[in-house]
Design a protein around this nucleic acid. Structure first.
Length: 859
RNA sequence: GCCCUCGUGGCGGAAUUGGUAGACGCGACGGAUUCAAAAUCCGUUUCUUUCAACGGAGUGUCGGUUCGAGUCCGACCGAGGGCACCA
């Protein structure tokens, strides 16, 4: 008997599916219910990696499973093709971003095809195709008209040597990654999409996303960050410049009597005013600006302050003066850019107060604390009662908040305010390889939209990357144009969109490639929302929130009929691998390493010991990568897919191991052997030719196992428990291997079992399934068969085995009829010799009988 | 720093969601087949009590709720993800 050779059969079956148009989505009038399954489309970096294999294998299982269940499935694929790596390649290798990107797409498409994924390739597009981004530009103009776009200043990381804006990841220890120049913060006028208009809706609608992971919803809710608090003014003891007071926002008005100081953001207007006359403060501002713009830089760094020498009056006690600092942890973008600080009940404030020796006055203490309650290293943020707080002593923080706000409102000196942490989305990028923002800047008319007839605004091809700055900006003529309104000389916007814009609406474009509009409304109405979206947890906040906003904005502008793009979301874990280093500390590829019992050694020189490092996410920088192409060449796509789906739960990280691949490969061969050894004997046997209720005990057991397997695997796939489905398929294969039929009835049962086995693993190992299906005498494709139905009668057990516990310890088990009532079960349990022995005549205090579950005696 | 998640045998993990902990796979060990090896097949495999048991312990640590806790609650320890210009 021959081994199964995937290298031949996989290519053949891929051609067969293509020839049969198996995976082309049908139109809305096909009479089937629809199912839209989408995996996050990849950035065309050049080669697929194991993370892609895992992601797309999962999506493919769902797509094939749903198709078999009778759904009209849409399962498209495309390319998130704009982004920085293409520009980096242009700078480093001199390749044009478009050339580099499209070559990568061709390579990766071929790799994806070799995995046998059931994509409808007729809908493929790349976001860098003008036929895609022209619609993105048109929609931006629609958003502009609908009031969803804003233009204002915001702060960016600026590299003074490379004359470019840096991404947070390009800032390393405050220096530009390429130039090593100290990074500055600079204010640029940029375009914003007004996502904050939807704060309440984006937050409230999370409750309806019941098929999203709880943790993603929680992360989004925290990100949106709704808070209720008090906005009020602290009057300056002496007016400065045009300022007579400072407006602050606080969520803890109950701690007002614990106020120690006020703090302004380095970018607060009053700070700017003061810095104009105070060189030391201007220096301090420059020091703050030298830090990164990311939240972890700001929150994680040392808390620094500058004493302005100003004082404000406490709003509840005009005689009480508080000093005013400028503090680097106060963000201009949140609230009013100014705070009052209560160090006793806020850790950041406490750190700051200790550093600058400011008073710490506790005003809330736990209910069980006495008068000696004090604050040392840790701020107290828990519940309790107020003290040191005048009229409000004894109240809970919550009650005090309400009463203090009410007092401010009555006195007309403050207001209850709802704030959101969510900021508007800055979409301007000073880069070449992105979608041009369709705006023309005219010295007379201002920012004017590009007329729709002139769309798309395409990127010029003749660009150079040999000098610093944005190639669009120093292109000789591209930006020079005339104003659509007055006809005078004007300049094109040279910024391009954030690539998150491209990926915020691609799901809608996949439903129908309308030539003259972003979406085909009949198609979106039929296909949207995406029934199952799958991708990495790293996108839990930004991409998913932007896409949710975009759907709303598209709904408002008539491009979509729904608000929520993804009805079901699944976030898969990462693919990890051991890391290796040689004696000199260089990272080594797994294929360079020979693992033995006494350690790891260099393959080319087995005297050289290799140091085994931690198990980490596969990454090029640490070389702990396994190339999917190599695995497919050696074992075939099915083995790679099966291994990716086995063992680890899909939401968790998986460790790639050679042993695991070998195990998957062995199973492929075992299934092939099982079916090919039986094929001749089962030739001509009709798998339906038996009566389920007239089987012998042993054959009946097999029949029940077959149908139990159908039921369980179906449920596992419905809940995306791929690893559980794999375990059950192993189990069924084990049972079928151990069964030797002796007559035609038994042969028919076995054949039905083998057919079921093939159908159950077909979504995961589709090529092997087709080969086996043919061997079992079928003419058509498994990919076109209907999912097997479990015989409900076979799932019912007539007797059940119950554990019997005495004082919570398992001491025996009894087998009782399924229908037995509690009293009967208790009687049977008591009669069990083991139980009698442990009861030992002791009085039974209580007997818990849970039918179908357990019996527990308490003595 | 803030927010979130996860900790179960030598390893990946399962456990009908509060009801027999360790399914299934990997590895290891023993055996069969073979001149030998590869491949394959059969068996054992949480730890522990000098063997064995229907003996004891056991789901990161400590405590709690319950007839019963891997599962619920509290504190702690450890690992990972996100933090707005990476995608």
């Amino acid at each position: 008997m021959s081994r199964y050779d995937p290298s031949v059969s996989e290519r053949d079956w891929q051609s067969a599916w293509e020839a049969a148009d198996c995976f082309k989505a049908l139109g809305p009038d096909c009479g089937k219910p629809k199912y839209y399954v989408l995996e996050m489309f990849p950035y065309p970096s050049g080669r697929i990696h194991m993370g892609h294999v895992r992601n797309y294998a999962m999506g493919d299982v769902i797509a094939r499973f749903k198709k078999a269940q009778g759904f009209n499935v849409l399962h498209p694929m495309g390319w998130d093709a704009f982004g920085m790596p293409a520009e980096n390649a242009a700078i480093e290798k001199g390749t044009h971003p478009a050339t580099w990107t499209y070559a990568n797409i061709d390579a990766m498409r071929a790799q994806l095809k070799s995995l046998g994924l059931s994509f409808d390739w007729s809908r493929e597009f790349a976001t860098c195709d003008p036929s895609y981004y022209r619609h993105e530009q048109a929609m931006f103009l629609d958003f502009l008209e609908a009031g969803l776009v804003d233009r204002r200043e915001s702060i960016v990381n600026w590299d003074p040597v490379d004359q470019t804006v840096l991404a947070n990841e390009q800032v390393i220890d405050g220096k530009g990654w390429r130039s090593s120049a100290a990074v500055e913060q600079r204010a640029l006028t940029q375009w914003f999409l007004k996502i904050s208009d939807f704060s309440d809706d984006l937050l409230g609608a999370l409750d309806g996303l019941t098929r999203w992971p709880e943790k993603v919803r929680l992360m989004q809710a925290n990100w949106i960050g709704r808070s209720e608090g008090l906005a009020c003014r602290f009057e300056l003891a002496e007016a400065v410049g045009g300022f007579s007071d400072i407006e602050i926002y606080t969520t803890r008005p109950d701690t007002l009597y614990g106020a120690s100081f006020c703090a302004l953001s380095p970018d607060h207007p009053l700070t700017l005013e003061l810095a104009a006359r105070d060189a030391a403060l201007a220096d301090f501002r420059a020091k703050c600006a030298a830090r990164g713009t990311s939240e972890s830089d700001i929150e994680g760094g040392e808390k620094l302050g500058y004493d302005t020498g100003l004082f404000v009056r406490h709003p509840l006690d005009p005689d009480w003066l508080l000093p005013v600092y400028v503090a680097n942890f106060v963000l201009m973008g949140y609230g009013t850019g100014a705070i009052f600080a209560c160090p006793a009940h806020d850790q950041r404030d406490l750190d700051f107060a200790r550093k600058y020796d400011l008073p710490v006055r506790p005003v809330v203490r736990p209910a069980d604390a006495d008068a000696s309650f004090d604050i040392a290293e840790l701020a107290y943020t828990g519940d309790g009662n107020l003290f040191n707080s005048g009229d409000f002593d004894g109240l809970s923080p919550k009650a005090a908040q309400a009463q203090i706000i009410a007092r401010f409102v009555e006195a007309g000196r403050g207001a209850r305010q709802v704030n959101f942490r969510l900021r508007d989305w800055g979409v301007s990028r000073q880069r070449y390889w992105g979608c041009p923002i369709p705006i023309i800047h005219c010295p007379h008319c201002g920012a004017v939209p590009v007329p729709r007839a002139q769309l798309p605004v395409t990127l010029p091809e003749d660009v150079r990357f040999d000098r610093p700055g944005n190639p669009l900006d120093h292109h000789p003529d591209w930006k020079h144009t005339s104003c659509p309104e007055c006809g005078g000389d004007a300049l094109r916007e040279t910024d391009t969109f954030d690539t998150f814009v491209d990926s915020s609406w691609y799901y809608a474009r996949f439903t129908g490639l309308a030539p003259d509009a972003p979406t085909d409304r009949a198609a979106t109405d039929y296909w949207m929302s995406v029934d199952q979206y799958i991708g990495g947890i790293e996108h839990a906040i930004l991409h998913l929130l932007y896409a949710r906003f975009y759907a709303r904005a598209m709904h408002r502008t008539g491009h979509l009929g729904t608000d929520e793009p993804f009805a079901g979301l699944f976030t898969q874990g990462m693919v990890c691998h051991e890391t290796y280093r040689d004696a000199a500390g260089n990272w080594l590829l797994p294929e360079q390493v020979e693992r033995r019992e006494d350690g790891a050694f260099l393959k080319d020189d087995p005297t050289q010991r290799v140091e085994i490092g931690g198990i980490e996410k596969m990454s090029k920088s640490k070389k702990n990568v396994v190339d999917p192409d190599d695995i497919i060449a050696a074992y075939g796509a099915d083995t790679a897919r099966w291994f990716m789906l086995s063992d680890s739960p899909p939401e968790r990280d998986v460790q790639w191991t050679q042993e695991g691949v070998d195990g998957a490969w062995r199973f492929v061969q075992r299934v092939w052997r099982l079916i090919s050894t039986q094929a001749d004997a089962l030739d001509g046997v009709n798998a339906q030719d038996f009566q389920a209720d007239k089987l012998t005990a042993q054959t009946g057991d097999l029949y029940r196992t077959i149908h139990r397997s159908i039921h369980d695997v179906t449920q596992d796939l419905e809940t995306l428990g791929f690893n559980r489905a794999v375990a059950r398929i192993y189990n069924l294969a084990n049972e079928l291997s151990g069964f030797t039929p002796t007559d035609d009835t038994e042969r028919a049962v076995l054949k039905s079992g083998l057919c079921v086995l093939v159908q159950l693993f077909a979504p995961m190992m589709p090529h092997l399934a087709e080969s086996c299906w043919r061997l079992l005498g079928h003419e058509g494709l498994v990919a076109e068969t209907h999912w097997p139905q479990a015989d409900a009668a076979a799932l019912v057990e007539d007797s059940v085995t119950l554990p019997v516990q005495i004082n919570g310890k398992r001491r025996a088990e009894i087998t009782v009829p399924k229908s037995a009532d509690q009293a009967t079960i208790e009687q049977l349990a008591r009669a069990e010799p083991q139980v009698e022995k442990f009861l030992d005549g002791k009085p039974i205090k209580k007997c818990v009988v849970v039918p179908g579950r357990i019996v527990n005696f308490v003595v």
